[in-house]
């Protein structure tokens, strides 16, 4: 079964620093085989008898065929769990489950795609760019971050993309501002047919607004905090409009993380919209 996730104990092959981030390559053939761009993995942190019960979810940056198949994760240290991961060394083992989630849908015919990434969210875009280029698509990158050391993958984007536009909020690299400030220009110049985006909710909302103005499809990969990643804990829900027009609280881990941007009710994230299926006092209750 291509889509079904597996749990593996992978051996860490290499660890490296990439600017402000850490990258971890782990031998996990079962996950590498099944991987498609947009998939993510979850890892257990803290070792055996860990006091940290929730799994940490990371997008897969890269998959390589070495040692039967490896996956590379990119993360910034944000708490005790990621600090533990950052301390891992080669030959340590790591409990991974993956690949999880709904991957990026790919266009049937060659077209021009703009790939937008914010901070380490950009890590998910390179496997996607590779898959798009294999289908004959033109790929343009827009990468942003608060400062130069937190722009992820600028070099690789320059190598792969037809054009690459970088933005930093402090102006230390590329244009000063946010990715959404430069996106309309990039879409217009490239005559883009589709947009893919990965990053924080606020940035995805902005990207979706721009894509809707240009009337082109936009696929966004959301970052919502998760406990399990496999769809049982119900904590990563976002309000999304279904094919039938009904808003449901759907799991980012299972129905996502990739959604059609215009279907996600970004303004209502963190709330239960009054018209959502099963909302308190709503018309369906």
């Amino acid at each position: 079964m291509a889509g079904s996730p597996v749990q593996v104990t992978g051996t860490v092959l290499t660890t490296r620093r990439v600017d402000a981030y850490h990258a971890l390559t782990v031998v996990a053939p079962g996950i590498a085989d099944r991987f498609r761009p947009g998939h993510f993995v979850t890892v257990a942190v803290g070792g055996r008898d860990s006091s940290m019960l929730t799994r940490r979810a990371f997008t897969i940056h890269d998959v390589k065929p070495d040692y039967g198949g490896t996956v590379e994760l990119v993360f910034g240290v944000r708490g005790a769990g990621t600090a533990w991961l950052a301390d891992l060394r080669a030959r340590d083992t790591l409990d991974l489950v993956g690949p999880l989630g709904r991957p990026f849908p790919l266009p049937r015919d060659p077209c021009t795609c703009v790939l937008v990434g914010d901070e380490h969210g950009a890590a998910a875009l390179f496997a996607l760019a590779d898959a798009l280029q294999q289908r004959g698509c033109r790929v343009d990158f827009v990468l942003g971050a608060p400062s130069a050391d937190r722009v992820f993958g600028a070099l690789r984007a320059r190598r792969m993309g037809e054009t690459t536009t970088l933005t930093t909020e402090d102006g230390s690299l590329g244009m000063r501002g946010r990715v959404t400030d430069v996106l309309p220009g990039v879409i217009a110049d490239a005559r883009a047919d589709a947009v893919y985006a990965c990053g924080p909710m606020e940035m995805l909302r902005g990207v979706t607004t721009v894509a809707v103005e240009f009337d082109i499809p936009v696929q966004v990969a959301v970052e919502e905090s998760m406990a399990c990643g496999i769809g049982v804990c119900m904590t990563c829900v976002v309000p999304v409009i279904g094919d039938d027009g009904v808003t449901r609280m759907v799991r980012a881990c299972t129905e996502g993380p990739v959604f059609r941007g215009e279907r996600v009710r970004f303004d209502d994230v963190g709330t239960i919209p009054f018209d959502a299926l099963g909302a308190p006092g709503g018309r369906h209750a």
């Binding site: 904590t235 990563c236 829900v237």
Partner: peptide, 15 residues
């Protein structure tokens, strides 16, 4: 009846 549940964040890790 169907229930939409509580708003997010719904989960916090504690020791």
């Amino acid at each position: 009846a169907p229930r939409a549940g509580r708003p997010t964040p719904r989960m916090a890790e504690t020791p």
